[in-house]
Design a protein around this nucleic acid. Structure first.
Lengths: 138, 138
DNA sequence: TTTTAATCGCAACATTGTTGCAATAACAAA
DNA sequence: TTTGTTATTGCAACAATGTTGCGATTAAAA
């Protein structure tokens, strides 16, 4: 069975509930960024709205999910880069296709080191690229 | 008087109203990213909530303001890089200080060219850096 | 099986954003 | 300056999104 889901929950000392299992599982199989309303639409009324909000919040706190933002609002993604509850230091590259609207994490693309003005100290870097993805480019 | 404000409005063929004048003026003097609720707090009930929303929307459409996003939501900034209503092609670098919470635009920092996986086509790039700003670093 | 603490679902509320429409104000032309 | 046209505003009502408290339920350790 899906050992990834149970492992992830156990690793972060979270109880194994239906909602958590199915949410992680969905993110895992879709591999794109999903919003709260995406989850609501997908799960119908299997879970309470509030439970979904709390599940997402918990996952972000634990470093299982990452927030992804673009002009259209907030989404969440399961990136390969795992974080801990202690630190979220990472450099994320997300790509949003303006055609199909899907956003995904470009795991293998890294942000080049950049020169900041004097006195600025970076600890986290987030890059959002918008354009057209391979599927939509015909 | 503040010719910048009137010039900006005229340039984009927008009527010169009190709300628009004061909003642009505020962004100009603050030089940091502001949210809708920041404006509401600042202007009290001088302007209707809806008017502020519409003003922000108009300014974004015209390319006067840019959306700036981080974990805490949506804000707007007046960046030096002007856009037209036609195109918003630009690469923005924004810096959010995790100490004071302020976000500003690093005008002189540019995003290095980066190598995307095959088939991906970028048209807009947004970089958000989080860390500590010069003022907060003692 | 029992115990205990985490999690859930419900209700109620707060914030944020949108739409339609009549009243008003900006600005160009007379 | 006055008039006419059209953009803009303010209000009301609504929709979507996010939060909090609390009693009931359930996972997992003892």
């Amino acid at each position: 069975m899906n050992t990834f889901v149970k492992d992830t929950l156990k690793l972060h000392q979270l109880r194994n509930t239906t909602c958590r299992e199915e949410v992680i599982s969905l993110f895992h199989q879709k591999a794109i960024a999903l919003s709260h309303s995406d989850l609501e639409a997908y799960f119908g009324n299997s879970f309470d709205r509030v439970t979904l909000y709390r599940t997402l919040k918990t996952f972000v706190e634990k470093g299982i999910l990452h927030k992804v933002l673009d002009d259209n609002g907030l989404r969440y993604a399961l990136c390969r880069q795992e974080c801990t509850a202690q630190g979220h230091r990472h450099d994320h590259v997300h790509f949003k296709c303006m055609q199909c609207g899907e956003t995904n994490c470009l795991e293998d693309t890294h942000i080049p080191v950049l020169q900041l003005p004097d006195g600025y100290n970076a600890s986290e870097v987030n890059l959002l690229i918008q354009g057209v993805c391979p599927q939509c480019k015909h």
